[in-house]
Computed example of a mutant assay.
Amino acid sequence: MNGTINDFSFGMITPVTAYAVACVGAALGLRCVARTVHHAQGWRPGWLALGSASLGCGIWTMHFIAMVGFRVEETSINYDLGLTVLSLALAITVVGIGVFIVGYAGASRMSLSTAGTLAGLGVAAMHYVGMDAMHLNGEIRYDTRIVALSVVVAIVAATVALWATVSIRGFLSSLAASLVMGIAVTGMHYTGMAAVSVHLRSGVDPTPVGHAPTSLLLPMLIVPCIFLVLATVVVMFDPLLVLGEGEWKATSVGPTDTPLPAWSSTPQKHDRSQSTSAS
């Protein structure tokens, strides 16, 4: 007997919130990637590590916010703490490898395809390890064709997001890329959930082993959310983001190398006086 699955037990609250968090994590992570690719100032490993952690936390938080709305009507659901933490570590590590590849190898076709594939696989690995952390009175089964489609969605969208980040300069391009990455993460999640069916076990529904969602997921979500807030503060204090690319270039050049504005009248008067005295 198959269980009755509901991915939206709280309506649109969980998918909208999950997408918003995924976009925030992607915006922070991809901005850090763009920061290292387009500008030499700063400590590259530090920016890439911050970007990896931001992307990983955003992906993981999105998944488990969405899973708060997941229900099987005939059975209760608990989560294994170790596998839940492992899914977070996988998201940060595998996506981070892709981020470091782009950060050091640049925007070549090979580096982007490799990094996008790794980032997409990191999203998929986090998702299915997180799903394996669930304990319920039944067996979770997957439609392999839809699972394969979910992985393709993650890889393609992650590759496009990284390409846009390193190929098109500017804050707006990074913002657009983060929206694409948010679609990659949430699209992969709900595509993967469409592959799920639960085959219930016969007999009385025992209390599943592990922690209830409200006692495990909600407290655990607080930590990555706090990290994303702190990462936002760090990124927003970066002059390249606050001032904008053009203004930062103007303020970062030395006084003798700064080109004079076209509207300035002082240099013109100074030049006239010099030419008069010379004559």
Rank of each mutant, 00 (worst) to 15 (best):
G96N: 06
C32G: 07
A66Q: 05
L83Y: 09
G25I: 07
P45G: 08
V72K: 11
G98E: 06
I77W: 07
G42K: 09
M12Q: 07
V33S: 01
G42V: 10
M62H: 04
R35F: 06
W43C: 11
Y19W: 14
G51K: 09
W47R: 15
A18L: 00
A18S: 15
W43F: 15
F10Y: 14
L55H: 07
M67I: 08
T17S: 14
Y79E: 02
G98C: 02
L88E: 01
L55C: 09
A26W: 05
S52G: 14
M67N: 07
G82L: 12
V99W: 03
I65T: 05
C23M: 13
F70R: 11
A26C: 07
F100E: 02
G11P: 03
M62A: 11
H38W: 14
G11E: 01
Y79G: 00
G69K: 09
V94M: 09
S87N: 05
V16S: 07
T75S: 14
G58I: 04
G69M: 11
M12F: 12
I59M: 10
T93Y: 02
G96F: 05
A89C: 13
A89T: 10
P15Y: 04
F70T: 10
R44H: 12
L50M: 15
T61P: 00
L88W: 04
D7Y: 10
T84Q: 00
F100A: 08
A18P: 01
S87M: 08
M62S: 13
T75V: 14
I77G: 06
L28I: 11
A26S: 15
C23Q: 04
T75Y: 05
A49E: 10
G25N: 04
G69I: 06
Y19P: 00
L88Y: 05
G58R: 03
T17C: 12
T84F: 01
S54F: 08
Q41V: 15
Y79L: 01
V16K: 05
V33N: 00
L30N: 02
R71K: 15
V24E: 01
T14L: 09
C57Y: 08
C32Y: 11
S54R: 03
G98Y: 05
L83F: 10
R35D: 11
V99T: 12
A27Y: 15
T36H: 03
V68Y: 13
S76R: 15
T36G: 11
R31I: 04
A22W: 00
A34C: 00
G98P: 04
T61N: 01
